[in-house]
């Protein structure tokens, strides 16, 4: 048991469940921002030996800056332009989504119990939580129609992978970590621009109505 890390894991699980149950797009963006903050602290908590290095601090700052502040800001901009407050017709209802969330949690726990224990992992919760976030992210992308919500799903998916990388693979070269963060940033930025263009072309951002191309 490692109390600080496990508390972060708890925050991650709770924000995921919230994301599944919330209909207000603005609240979804807030939840994913909280998730980004909690996530950003992880590198500090994991590398205990010898205290944090300058690089670790840099990664923490960049992560919190991007996932906790910049991404949510970008999404809120997109929401303001789009002038939509809530998801109108999700493919799966909110109660059902919560149920699916619990199923995903059980599935993630089962999957990680099948894998060999990670040597030197500071938290046994990291693997199941990471898989859980990947499942939830994928579920949000598949079950929601609003483009901003799909980006939120993508962020949750990315966050899940980030947890895996930081907690279970703490020897990951920092250059790779930085490359990955930069890529996530570019991805969200590009998606934001796409939403902006879709919005100005169609007067809506309901991905469900993007259905002209078939077969």
């Amino acid at each position: 048991m490692n109390l600080p890390i496990d508390s972060v894991m708890l925050v991650l699980v709770v924000t995921n469940l919230l994301l599944l149950g919330l209909s207000q797009l603005r609240s979804c963006v807030h939840a994913v921002a909280v998730q980004g903050f909690a996530l950003g602290l992880l590198p500090l908590l994991v590398r205990q030996s010898g205290g944090p290095t300058v690089w670790t601090l840099l990664v923490v700052l960049v992560t919190i800056g991007l996932k906790g502040v910049v991404f949510p800001k970008l999404l809120q901009e997109a929401l303001r332009d789009a002038d939509v407050r809530r998801e109108k017709r999700p493919h799966v209802g909110y109660t059902m989504s919560m149920v699916m969330g619990f199923v995903a949690l059980a599935g993630a726990a089962w999957l990680s119990s099948r894998l060999p224990a990670f040597s030197g992992s500071p938290s046994t919760l990291a693997a199941p939580v990471s898989f859980f976030m990947i499942f939830v992210g994928l579920f949000i992308i598949l079950s929601r129609n609003h483009a901003v919500n799909q980006i939120v799903g993508y962020l949750v998916l990315e966050n899940g992978i980030y947890v895996f990388g930081v907690v279970l693979l703490h020897e990951l070269p920092l250059l790779v970590e930085m490359g990955v963060l930069l890529d996530a940033f570019a991805a969200v930025f590009v998606m934001g621009v796409a939403v902006y263009h879709i919005n100005s072309e169609f007067d809506h951002v309901d991905v469900d109505q993007l259905d002209k191309l078939k077969g």
Binding site: L138, I141, A147, Q150, Y154, L157, E158, I161, A187, V190, M191, A194, H197, I198, E201, F202, V207, L210, D211, K212, L213
Partner: peptide, 20 residues
């Protein structure tokens, strides 16, 4: 065009998830 934006969005979201 509307069609090319639709294609771009599908490409972005599906491939981003795949690449993740």
């Amino acid at each position: 065009t509307p069609a090319s934006l639709e294609a771009m969005w599908k490409y972005l979201i599906i491939c981003s998830v795949g690449v993740a």
